[in-house]
Design a protein around this nucleic acid. Structure first.
Lengths: 232, 232
DNA sequence: CACTGCAATTGCTGCAACGCAAATAAGACG
DNA sequence: CGTCTTATTTGCGTTGCAGCAATTGCAGTG
């Protein structure tokens, strides 16, 4: 990918928001490219955070594993998202593992480079605060949801969030354009794949969603889900 | 409080870490003082974030209320903690309400002042990233706990965390030096006050904790709690 | 000192959701 | 085209925990 191409990717990255075209070009020049194949991991939870990444295209799932082997899906990430950069800035090991859901490409900068960039462009540090703050908000929202809502409602909210973040409009409804297994949904909503399966089956029969095996999820009637999410 | 006194408070604030004595004095000079009485709120969730605060002394409980009236305790805060500052930097309304658990004092800076300080001392922006990152970590840990552990274990972990953050060693064990109601614990561990009550009663009878009505919580045998927390 | 109000305790009941297990379907691969 | 593997469905039994309600105990107030 040449520098102008990289630059245009970086233009859509909030982390670099407010930088001039030529400044972005500078940033772009100093990046390394890291191609990603489906199912590949960008790095491993626990590794030393030597590089920070920006996802150019593709999709990632961010997994966190507990000491006793349980898994939690922290978030899904798409083009323009920051991956692992917070860990680099805080000088702590990566707290989670990003897994590629499809082929993609990430741009990376080494830890010293990042520090240098932030020093040269103070705007970046402010942007970082905004990005991280957004994640805090999201985490707090999920915490609240898990703490106070019951499973059906959480699943509905999660589907709607996925649809808003990455849904594609089709004649049949809103489609979620990457594979999401029952296990994934279970780990996102803090329940079991059994319960997710039952819930989706029920919704499928009611015509709210289309969730046949192995095809992408389609939400036929988002407003029905909204009803469930808002007050179940 | 005079400037040297303020300065010595700020020395223990990670947000201002790495600043020179005279720089801290500058920061201190530009602060406003805000005395706090027990049960008073520093600001209200939803208000515009015009000022950022640092807690000089005293203790706060940070509450978040859902649209439907449910309450979640986000965290307890003590001297040196940052309150509401993230919201100021992100230019969003305060996402939660800090309630004073005892008389205390906060220092505050207006939004423009804070922006100016960060510009003048870029180190502050980096510190902010560190502080916020720490909160993300804590939130993720809680998310994991709620998602994968059962109630007894979560209560044990929460008590241990409180003890580590603010516990005082006494002959009887480790004391938590501010009042924590069953309701509070319930909101922290995502359960009901009933279940918390039952659990603490059981532990009290087993001699693990001392949790009589209206006296401060005392953890007699932290290691027993650790056992419960680590593998229940 | 009695009264009032709030926090905590505790027994009981019901249910949402978990866990197991067996059946089923669908891709993947040779 | 058959076989293997993996994801999903679904029935059934179990249970952790919430929800309700009645009681108790403590603290502050007049």
């Amino acid at each position: 990918m040449d520098i102008p191409a990289r630059t245009s990717v970086l233009q859509r990255v909030p982390f670099f928001g407010g930088l001039e075209e030529d400044q972005l070009a500078t940033v772009a020049r100093e990046a390394h490219e890291r191609p990603l194949k489906k199912d590949e991991t960008l790095f491993q939870q626990g590794e030393e955070a030597t590089h920070g990444y920006v996802l150019g295209w593709g999709r990632l799932r961010l997994d966190q594993t507990t000491p006793d082997g349980q898994n939690v899906v922290l978030r899904y990430m798409g083009p323009g998202d920051l991956v692992g950069t917070v860990a680099v800035l805080r000088r702590i090991p990566f707290p989670a593992t990003p897994v590629a859901l499809e082929d993609g490409l990430a741009l990376s900068w080494s830890a010293p480079r990042l520090a240098e960039l932030m020093e040269r462009f103070p705007k970046i540090a402010l942007n970082a605060i905004g990005v991280i703050g957004g994640r805090i908000e999201e985490l707090q929202a999920r915490l609240q949801a898990i703490a106070t809502q019951r499973v059906e409602r959480r699943i509905a909210s999660t589907l709607l969030r996925l649809a808003n973040q990455s849904g594609r409009r089709t004649e049949a409804g809103v489609e979620i354009p990457f594979p999401v297994s029952r296990q994934d949904l279970a780990e996102m909503t803090a329940t079991t794949l059994h319960t997710v399966s039952r819930t989706l089956s029920a919704w499928d029969q009611q015509g709210i969603v289309e969730s046949r095996r192995s095809s992408h999820l389609v939400i036929r009637h988002p407003h029905r889900l909204v009803e469930i999410a808002e007050q179940g």
